[in-house]
């Protein structure tokens, strides 16, 4: 039968049984189109600086970055990167990290060796690479950012 040959061609390498490596239950069918939630928003870490920055960032987003188009090719975008950098380190180090990020953003030649992964359609450039802490530079996580929101 022709259709059979077609089907077998379509599904040659389905990974067998991996779907059963956790016990699963019935799920009701869902017809709706799933919208990829891009939750870039930072949570407050309780510090004053971080709260002020989060506030300033949303003002900037409301008045400017939500209106001037998709300019940042990175995930997280530069303004989010700044907030996260300050949260991860301190205001001075965060500012330096931001300046470096901004310079890299301005460089129009972005190689895929430097930014090997895409997240939400943008180049994944996480903060943990730039904290100057070797133990945090996790290439595995850079290549598989599945847990990153």
């Amino acid at each position: 039968m022709k259709s059979l040959a077609l089907i077998l061609l379509l599904f040659p390498a389905l990974i067998l049984a991996q779907a059963d490596w956790t016990r699963w239950k019935a799920v009701p069918p869902s017809y709706k189109i799933k919208i990829g939630q891009n939750t870039e928003t930072e949570k407050s870490d309780g510090s004053f600086t971080s709260d002020v920055l989060i506030g300033l960032r949303s003002v900037y987003a409301f008045f400017i970055s939500d209106l001037d188009g998709d300019n940042c090719p990175f995930y997280p975008s530069c303004s989010h990167f700044f907030v996260r950098a300050v949260q991860a380190t301190n205001l001075v180090q965060g500012a330096l990290m931001f300046a470096d990020r901004f310079t890299r953003d301005t460089n129009i030649f972005k190689s895929s060796t430097q930014y090997p992964t895409r997240l939400h359609g943008r180049l994944y450039d996480p903060v943990f690479l730039y904290e100057l802490d070797e133990s945090k530079i996790n290439i595995k996580k850079l290549l598989n950012p599945s847990n990153e929101n």
């Binding site: 259709s3 059979l4 089907i7 599904f11 779907a19 699963w24 019935a26 799920v27 069918p29 869902s30």
Partner: peptide, 18 residues
């Protein structure tokens, strides 16, 4: 498998059934 939302596996077994 279909009821469990595992469509790839479902199609695989339907194909075997075919």
């Amino acid at each position: 498998y279909k009821a469990g939302g595992k469509e790839n596996e479902a199609v695989k077994y339907f194909s075997l059934a075919l």
